[in-house]
Amino acid sequence: MGCVESMNYEIVLRDATFKESRDYIKKTYAEFRDVLPGFKVFDTHVIGLPPIAIGLEGDFVIFPFTKPCHGTFLLRVEDKEEAARLRALKK
């Protein structure tokens, strides 16, 4: 997932469990889409316990990113095209 590390991202949440991250997205963002593990967000196959919630806020995409030693982070990345692609997914 090297590409995530090179993105211009903001860390929305850290040191949370994966389930806490999912609850945070569902509580915080009016718009979100549930996807399955392995679904591609940007060029990354997302890791997570299904269903994985992906938040949408204007042109921003909010998604979980898990590393074995650092746990799950919620990242917020601005990308109009990716937000539109995800928004077009069936709820």
């Binding site: 469990t17 994966f18 399955l36 593990p37 392995g38 890791i47 997570g48 316990l49 299904p50 898990t66 590393k67 074995p68 030693c69 650092h70 746990g71 799950t72």
Partner: peptide
């Protein structure tokens, strides 16, 4: 041994 491990196991179970 941590939450990330649970997350990876759930992922493997799904994919």
């Amino acid at each position: 041994h941590n939450d990330a491990g649970i997350t990876y196991a759930g992922t493997m179970s799904a994919i």
